[in-house]
């Protein structure tokens, strides 16, 4: 990373695409899942901060970026508009934690984090996009940064050194 890199923040239930050398940053993925896509030839990348696995369980969808089944295809489309080729895209995932462990099992039935991971993997597979790395699960939050210059994804976790996937 150098100081000339432009940082672009991706908020919760948002997705953004950018050209090299922009850093796409999303802060505080808990049970949400972050999906980073990158085209090594076109040097463009995209990052989505997804809240829920499946939009089909909701009668009304206001924001496509909120759901894994809609956000990932939309992210691909936006990257293609920016010159990416779908078959070259590589994916990295982070997040999908379970932050709270309720002692009463009936409350934990939603298991949102785990379902976010599973659906994100499935959608990528259906789109034919290769999943090259992931840092998922656990009971802690993550900040995820995609470096569109080299496709590296940096993960920040409280109390641990930053790692690269």
């Amino acid at each position: 990373m150098n100081i000339f890199n432009l940082e672009l923040k991706v908020g919760i239930a948002e997705l953004k695409v950018a050209r090299s050398p922009t850093l796409l940053v999303t802060i505080g993925l808990g049970s949400c899942i972050g999906v980073a896509l990158w085209d090594r030839l076109a040097k463009v990348g995209g990052l989505a901060h997804i809240m829920l696995p499946d939009s089909k369980q909701f009668s009304q969808v206001v924001n496509k970026a909120k759901f894994a089944d809609l956000a990932i295809p939309l992210l691909v489309k936006k990257l293609e508009d920016l010159g990416a080729s779908k078959h070259r895209l590589e994916a990295k995932l982070a997040g999908g934690a379970q932050m709270f462990s309720f002692k009463d099992r009936r409350i934990s039935v939603f298991n949102i984090g785990e379902r976010n991971i599973q659906v994100a993997r499935k959608v990528l597979q259906e789109l034919g996009i290769k999943l090259v790395a992931e840092d998922v699960g656990g009971n802690y939050g993550r900040t995820m940064i995609l470096n569109t210059a080299n496709g590296e994804v940096y993960i920040r976790i409280v109390g641990r050194p930053q790692k690269t996937i």
Binding site: G30, S31, M51, N63, Q98, F100, D104, I107, F110
Partner: peptide, 27 residues
């Protein structure tokens, strides 16, 4: 009330998960 659960982490991760893991999915 249920027995409470605690998380200590980044505000963004904690607060979004408190709603999602508690079953609140509204806009």
């Amino acid at each position: 009330p249920s027995v409470p659960a605690l998380a200590f982490d980044m505000l963004g991760a904690v607060l979004s998960s408190a709603f999602l893991e508690g079953g609140c999915f509204a806009e």
